[in-house]
Design a protein around this nucleic acid. Structure first.
Length: 588
RNA sequence: GCACUCGUAGCUCAAUUGGAUAGAGCGUCUGACUACGGAUCAGAAGGUUAGGGGUUCGACUCCCUUCGAGUGCACCA
């Protein structure tokens, strides 16, 4: 549509002797209730034209119509110039772009981006909150790839610390040598079980101490279990052979469990980082910052940065005993990543409770003048809450990721069977299909919402399969495929249609927008943009499908044309869903 | 207390980044060619965009303020 903007700039120069930047011309989709496909808002030009918005619109409209053969007609309503573009133009779009092999395939833009997501703790299984994180991260990576970036998907595993020692200790005390094999439990669930057991036992000890007259705070510090866990952490840091061995064993269990969950979710990573390798990093950056005068040292030896000029506080970056804090290792890890990949952008998919942390982290890296510091972005997303409130692993009030996915599959199975649509499917095909639909419903449900909004999830109200949902879009795709196969469709040459019905035009207009939609989604790091587009497209296709007969079209030309339109729609739906990490079935 | 985020139909979400009469789905109600696949389509009802003020041709969107929800403000990670 750039050619219209260009012409409008020329029009304004000719008519009103004023140069305007192309960006000041807002070209938008015409609202459905008006004639036309694109609209120019003319209010901003009234200052140059010294005429009313309607007259200004009419003048520009006339100029454009004379200038551009693609413009069939225009109408002006208040300050809105609605432009109708010729059917010839739209038909050309279909044949020259949409049906082309490379439609919506962006050329490499020469930029590299890292998307870090998932970043689990190895002391418990994944839950619904992690699912949102994983889906967002994976989808954003897909979208950036489609927009022309070279993408590196990274996972920073939090595999050390006091919380890991808690499950280890509880397993030592209560485990009786239990393993995933002996218990039949998935590895991450087994470890998670001991994490919960630790917390229970710890609480009991706290209560005992309180009964003996200690304050809550004292009791929390003095409980034998927490002391033992701390000792274990010290042993771990000292490289104690026995502790390390147990740590490795239990981590292996967890990784095996995670691998299965990731596989079910359909997410993957190109690069793993482990905190056990990175937690000591960052001290050289502290030194560098001191030399540059970005940091300062207090009398006790602790190192700080003063961010009050930026509206934040003073922030500790190194303890007085010389050991790292959270942000120290994040500084180091950022450097490590950059040294390895030299990426232009780095996206951190992390929940919004860490907004402040990332604000500080990025600010520090920028003040240090680090390469790549301008490309840092925290993709912050809202928590997933239950009707009962927040999910808490320690208290067991979580929606477990594996359970939820199994439930989604079961629901998909029940729905599909109830409709009796799986005749001729092998058992393996059926399982595959239920998984595709169940995950489609879940993924779409989580991704259609703006990431930064918090999400309420009611486990008792199952995720819908009708209306604005993943299965709705999947169904549209399957139905198109069915029609195409019935027609024995093959892509053939351009069909000489000359006129479009309005539903056909609407569909082509939407299809042409796909590359721009990918661009917008990439710029905003928002899968929701893609999700809403895919829905809009499916809906428009369904409308077309109901209004126009394809196999019984009026004539062969119309039939072939509509088949091509259908094939294009299926292709774009499939690609869009793919960007969300959602598969679309051929039959369902 | 300070900072950040959010508040749109009964419910779950949109709104082309300041543009037209705020749109969808679910739910409720009414319809659709003896199904090119009905997980679909057409229609109805449902709104003081939390309240108030301001900025301007125009505000769900920007500014101020009140209320409500959430999160963060550790020599924890």
């Amino acid at each position: 549509m750039d050619f219209i903007i260009e012409a409008a700039v020329k029009a304004i120069k000719q008519l009103y002797q004023t140069d305007v930047a192309p960006a000041t011309i807002s070209l938008q989709e015409t609202r459905k209730e008006f004639e036309g496909q694109v609209t120019i808002v003319t209010f901003p030009f009234t200052k140059f034209s010294r005429k009313g918005p309607e007259q200004t619109g009419t003048e520009i409209g006339e100029y454009l119509k004379n200038e551009l053969k693609e413009i069939a007609a225009f109408n002006v309503i208040k300050g809105f110039l609605n432009i109708s573009i010729t059917d010839e133009y739209w038909i050309g779009q279909l044949y020259n772009h949409i049906l082309a092999e490379d439609f919506a395939v962006a050329k490499p833009n020469g930029q590299k981006v890292m998307v870090e997501y998932s970043s689990p703790n190895t002391n418990k299984p994944l839950h619904l909150g992690h699912i949102r994180n994983n889906l967002l991260g994976y989808s954003v990576a897909q979208i950036l790839g489609a927009a022309g970036y070279e993408v590196v998907k990274a996972n920073l595993v939090n595999d050390r610390g006091i919380h890991i020692c808690k499950s280890m200790l509880a397993w030592q005390k209560f485990g009786n040598g239990e393993t995933p094999e002996s218990s039949g439990l998935k590895g991450d669930h087994l470890v998670g079980k001991y994490y919960v057991l630790f917390d229970k036992a710890y609480k009991t000890q706290i209560d005992e101490l309180k009964a003996e007259g200690q304050s809550e705070e004292e009791a929390k510090k003095n409980a034998p279990f927490i002391k033992e866990a701390q000792q274990m952490l010290q042993k771990w840091e000292a490289g104690d052979a026995e502790v390390i061995k147990l740590w490795k064993t239990m981590n292996e269990w967890v990784y095996a469990g995670f691998a299965e969950t990731y596989k079910q979710l359909g997410v993957s990573f190109d690069k793993y980082y482990y905190e056990s390798n990175t937690y000591l990093l960052g001290k050289d950056i502290i030194e560098e910052g001191l030399q540059k005068g970005v940091f300062f040292k207090k009398e006790d030896g602790s190192v700080w940065i003063d961010l009050t000029a930026d509206g934040l506080d003073e922030k500790l970056v190194l303890r007085s005993d010389g050991t790292s804090v959270y942000i120290t290792q994040d500084l180091g890890t950022a450097q490590l990543k950059y040294n390895e990949f030299h990426m232009d952008k780095s996206i951190y998919v992390v929940g919004n409770e860490q907004d402040y942390h990332f604000k500080v982290l990025f600010l520090i890296l920028r003040k240090l003048g680090k390469a790549g510091a301008d490309g840092l972005f925290h993709l912050s997303y809202g928590m997933v809450d239950l009707p009962s409130g927040k999910m808490k692993s320690r208290e067991g009030t979580v929606v477990d990721a594996d359970d939820l996915m199994a439930e989604m599959n079961a629901t998909a199975k029940a729905q599909t069977e109830a409709m009796g649509k799986v005749d001729g499917f092998t058992e393996a095909d059926k399982l595959q299909l239920y998984h595709t639909i169940g995950m489609g419903a879940l993924k779409y449900f989580l991704l259609k919402v703006d990431p930064k909004k918090r999400l309420l999830f009611d486990p008792n109200e199952s995720v819908d399969f009708q209306g604005h949902t993943g299965p709705f879009i999947q169904y549209t795709h399957a139905r198109i495929k069915s029609v195409l196969s019935k027609a024995g469709y093959q892509l053939n040459n351009k069909i000489e249609v000359t006129e479009l019905a309005s539903v056909e035009r609407d569909l082509i207009v939407l299809l042409t927008q796909f590359p721009d939609i990918i661009g917008t989604a990439a710029n905003e790091y928002s899968p929701a943009v893609i999700a809403n587009y895919a829905y809009e497209l499916a809906k428009t296709y369904n409308k077309f499908y109901h209004e126009k007969s394809i196999l019984q079209a009026e004539d062969e030309i119309s039939k072939q044309f509509r088949l091509q339109l259908s094939a294009s729609s299926a292709k774009v739906i499939s690609k869009a869903m793919n960007l969300l990490g959602i598969d679309v079935p051929e039959r369902m």
